[in-house]
């Protein structure tokens, strides 16, 4: 049995969001954002934003390709926050009116490191 992974203790306040948003692939994070309500995205964004710089500084103490499990969870949460920020700061909507379903395209990362 594997132990349940939680966020690093300093970021425990974000734990309620992690189950939904700490997703391993960019496709899953985009799908989550496009299908969430703007209120839910706003709540997630509001919680993460004040801790973002602190969280990046914390993560930067580890090599990108060797993040421990708790840090991986935090990193995935931040990458999801980048998606959430687009909806809140730029589009003011979970998805753009002209955007096709995210099943129309596939995104893959090579040598980009991390999640």
């Amino acid at each position: 049995m594997s132990a349940v992974v939680t966020l690093p203790p300093a970021f425990a306040v974000l734990e309620p969001f992690a189950a939904d948003w700490a997703l391993p692939t960019s496709d899953e994070r985009l799908h989550k954002r496009m299908n969430a309500s703007l209120e839910d995205i706003q709540a997630f964004y509001d919680a993460v934003l004040p801790l973002t710089e602190q969280a990046l500084a914390h993560l930067d103490r580890h090599p990108l390709d060797a993040l421990p499990p708790a840090e991986t969870r935090l990193f995935q949460l931040l990458l999801a926050a980048a998606e959430a920020a687009l909806a809140i700061e730029v589009y003011h909507a979970p998805r753009l009116p002209l955007a096709p379903s995210n099943s129309r395209f596939r995104v893959t990362h090579t040598h980009m490191g991390g999640a």
């Binding site: 993560l59 980048a82 040598h111």
Partner: peptide, 22 residues
């Protein structure tokens, strides 16, 4: 891109790539 060296650089790529993709 250049290979991201740190989690913060990788985070920055995620943000700007997301805007480009959309």
């Amino acid at each position: 891109y250049r290979k991201p060296k740190t989690p913060s650089e990788r985070f920055a790529r995620e943000y700007s790539f997301g805007l480009f993709r959309d």
